[in-house]
């Protein structure tokens, strides 16, 4: 189970640009490292991150092996209405982890 940490404001003024921070615990194994016996450690990374504001994608990130372990993102969105922010990570094999955050605007 991947642990998720979100830093987002609980309230915002209408039209305010808010900063969102999202971190997920994951090794992001690049596929370029070798183990003690010289064998290649297979790639195991999260490839996509999405932030949905009431179901609409407002920010998306695509990760490659060059993204560090425990991928961390800071980005922004404009507070338009009271609603739910969903932070969603998708693994290369299709597994999805997500967490929601309630935002009150007004």
């Amino acid at each position: 189970m991947a642990r998720i940490r979100i830093a987002a404001p609980d309230t915002a003024e209408p039209g305010e640009i808010i900063e969102l921070k999202a971190l997920i615990q994951h090794p992001m194994e690049s596929g370029f490292r070798r183990g003690s016996r010289g064998e290649v450690i297979p790639r195991d990374i999260i490839t996509t991150f999405e932030c949905l504001y009431d179901g609409e994608v407002v920010f998306e990130a695509e990760f490659f092996p060059a993204v560090s372990a425990n991928p961390f993102l800071t980005f922004h969105t404009k507070a338009t209405q009271t609603g739910t922010l969903e932070f969603r990570w998708t693994h290369q094999d299709g597994e999805i982890w997500s967490q929601t955050h309630a935002l009150t605007v007004g």
């Binding site: 994608v57 920010f59 998306e60 490659f64 338009t80």
Partner: peptide
Amino acid sequence: VARFTLGPRAG
């Protein structure tokens, strides 16, 4: 390294 998709809603 990484790619980001954003739009006017990003602010």
